[in-house]
Amino acid sequence: MDFLSAYTPSNLLYLWEGFQVTLLLALIAIICSYVVGIVLGILRYAKIPVFSRVLGAAVDIIRCLPLLLILFFTHFVLLPELGFQVSPFVAAIVALTVFEGAMISEIIRSGLNSIPKGQIEAARSSGLTYTQTLRAILIPQAARKMMPPTVSQFIALLKDTSLAVIITLPEVMHHARILSAHNSNSVFAILFFVAVMYFVVNFALSKIAKKLEAKHV
């Protein structure tokens, strides 16, 4: 375990550059997957004949597949077959958005289903349309219940970005692997530093999730 040779300024800067890619990837994927998850969750909750069933089946299939497979398939098969030659960064965003969007859609749907049906009936009987009921009654109440599990899913997303190393995305794990290959004695030190960076960010997010959960219990 050679910490001195591992923690040179150039190595630490190289790891930090990789972690910046990780954080940027996670941020964009969080925003995209949240938007996709909200749309899918509401459409599934609406129970549109046939469409909602087909959509639900598609979401269930995606949720049952490993993210590693989705990343590999998106970058090397799906996007090229559709005529898109994109960078590993864009492919990773697409794959994470699809996978995490499916996960978040289930959180959204479950949150909406947790609201008592009586409130919906009361809102509709008072003259509100379905859209108005959804916007003014259901979503504000469900949002408070959905926030903690949504933040937890975002934490999982940040950790899942490490899988993008399979498509040679130059994120932090990719950089850590290169540094480790140059000096086998520094593997532990390098991975330890990467673990600390992940821990700091995820610990902060977990604290936010716990505070939100305690606030809305």
Rank of each mutant, 00 (worst) to 15 (best):
Q141R: 02
R144V: 01
E121M: 10
S125N: 15
Y130T: 09
Q119G: 07
G118F: 06
A142G: 02
K117A: 05
R144I: 01
P116S: 05
T129R: 05
I115M: 01
G127V: 11
S125L: 13
P116Q: 02
K117F: 01
R135Y: 13
P116H: 04
Y130Q: 11
P140G: 03
I115T: 00
K117M: 04
I120C: 06
A143D: 01
T133Q: 12
I120K: 07
T133E: 13
R135D: 06
A136H: 12
T131I: 15
L134D: 06
P140V: 02
A142D: 01
G127I: 09
T133F: 06
P140C: 05
R124N: 12
I137H: 06
K145P: 00
G118S: 07
E121L: 12
Y130A: 12
L128T: 14
S125V: 12
L128F: 15
Y130I: 08
K145L: 06
A122R: 07
R144L: 05
L138V: 05
L128E: 11
I139G: 03
Y130S: 12
A122Y: 07
P116E: 01
S126T: 15
L128Y: 14
Q141L: 06
A136L: 14
R144Q: 04
T131Q: 12
T129K: 05
Y130G: 04
R124V: 15
A143H: 06
R124L: 15
K117I: 02
Q141D: 03
Y130E: 13
L128I: 14
L128H: 10
G118P: 04
G118D: 07
K117T: 03
P116R: 02
R135G: 07
Q132T: 14
G127W: 09
A136W: 09
A123S: 15
G127E: 08
T133I: 07
A143Y: 06
S125C: 15
I137T: 10
A142C: 02
L128P: 10
A142P: 01
I115W: 00
A143R: 10
I120E: 13
S126F: 10
K145H: 03
A142T: 02
P116G: 00
I115L: 00
Q141H: 04
Q141S: 04
P116K: 01
I137S: 07
K117E: 06
A122L: 09
I120W: 11
A142M: 02
P116I: 01
A122G: 09
Y130P: 05
L128D: 12
L128G: 11
T131E: 11
A136Y: 11
K117N: 04
P116D: 03
Q119E: 14
T129H: 05
A123D: 08
Q132L: 14
L128Q: 12
Q141F: 04
S125W: 10
Q141N: 06
L134N: 08
P140F: 05
Q141C: 03
P140S: 03
T131D: 09
A143V: 09
I139H: 04
P140N: 04
Q119S: 08
R135P: 03
I137Y: 07
R144G: 01
G127S: 11
Q141K: 03
Q132N: 13
E121W: 08
I120H: 09
R135W: 13
S126A: 15
T133D: 10
A136S: 13
Q132M: 14
I139P: 02
K117C: 00
Q132S: 15
Q119C: 09
A122P: 07
A122F: 08
I120N: 09
Q141G: 03
A143K: 11
R124D: 06
A136F: 11
E121H: 08
I115D: 00
